[in-house]
């Protein structure tokens, strides 16, 4: 058969395995989450993440094949995240992938995690129309890029300091919310009013982002007074984030005309960002492409789909860890 790719994603705290066809159909996807382990630390504890990956990765691979009801002989190859990410976590995924490749006699390709995120919008349904403006908002990254096709990506701007996801998690911790803070802040924000005028960093200039000042402003406010309801703090914080992301995206769309506006990464699950992105897309006359929420966070399916791109382009990257892999690399 050989018409499926096994995708392996272990760059951070999820052990994620999926089997995906060339056109993005997800035949199976299994994610072993480590949220409970890292919750008590308020963020990902890298050593414990790597330990957990090694315990769960083989059972997760088995579960993915069981769910798909296929045999390893039916796959074309294996794609594995080679960076960016946590070194211990990446090495478990890569060494596991190489072992499986030898045992099953299948090629193993190292894949850029960021390219996986960019492709997540085309999982299960081909949504993206090129050229596409992409906003990647995750725990590790925040950038705007224009994709001319699945392989040709021009990064337009990125964050100078914290990523949006990092900012969400840290503010979540300040508000006493469990890790990961993003979904909980989103929920809390719906109960509050955006009454606090938090700064909108670099709002009026260029396409670059900066979120450390906003994070510090929330911290200073909470240290100075307990006069504000947590829900109002959350609502005000989310409003500041959304306004910055949407303003920068609008500016990018004006400068780089695109047919679709794509938002990927874990923060793309935020309901207010999704709503604001729809308004912007309507205003700019572009099609909004949002991956279903389950594909917004780290998953093996996006790595498998990106691996298909590599195969088709003849880019056979050896599965070697590269911690600071950038968007322009493969």
């Amino acid at each position: 058969m050989s018409d499926l790719i096994l995708g392996i994603e272990t760059s951070c705290d999820d052990t994620a395995i999926a089997l995906v066809s060339e056109n993005g159909d997800v035949i199976s996807s299994v994610i072993s989450s480590q949220i409970e382990i890292h919750n008590e630390y308020g963020g990902v504890y890298p050593e414990f993440a790597a330990r957990e990956h090694i315990q769960t990765i083989i059972p997760t691979v088995k579960a993915a094949f069981d769910q798909a009801k296929i045999s390893p002989k039916d796959i074309k190859g294996i794609g594995v995240t080679r960076g960016p990410g946590l070194v211990g976590s990446l090495l478990v995924g890569i060494n596991t992938a190489i072992g499986l490749g030898h045992g099953w006699n299948k090629p193993v390709i190292g894949v850029n995690h960021l390219r996986g995120h960019l492709r997540s919008a085309d999982l299960e349904e081909q949504r993206v129309k090129f050229p596409a403006m992409v906003l990647l908002v995750s725990g590790g990254h925040t950038f705007l890029a224009q994709m001319k096709n699945p392989m040709e990506v021009q990064v337009l701007s990125s964050t100078r300091d914290d990523s949006v996801g990092e900012c969400f998690d840290k503010v979540g911790r300040m508000l006493g919310l469990d890790y990961p803070g993003g979904p909980k802040i989103d929920k809390l924000a719906h109960k509050g009013k955006p009454t606090i005028p938090f700064p909108r960093p670099m709002m009026d200039k260029g396409l670059e982002f900066s979120f450390s000042g906003l994070k510090a402003a929330v911290s200073r406010l909470l240290a100075a007074t307990d006069a504000h309801e947590d829900a109002d703090v959350a609502a005000s914080f989310v409003q500041a984030i959304v306004e910055v992301l949407i303003k920068k995206s609008e500016r990018a769309l004006k400068k780089h005309p695109s047919k679709s506006f794509v938002i990927v990464g874990g923060v793309a699950a935020n309901s207010q960002i999704r709503a604001a992105a729809q308004k912007l897309s309507d205003k700019m006359g572009v099609e909004l492409c949002l991956p279903p929420i389950k594909w917004a966070t780290d998953n093996g399916a996006m790595i498998a789909l990106a691996t298909w791109d590599y195969f088709k382009a003849g880019i056979i990257k050896p599965p070697k860890v590269q911690l600071n892999l950038t968007m322009s690399e493969f």
């Binding site: 330990r51 090694i54 691979v61 390893p72 596991t96």
Partner: peptide
Amino acid sequence: RTGVAFANSLAYSL
């Protein structure tokens, strides 16, 4: 971990 991950996956796949 690199050695053990490789050993486990090779053993599983074989």
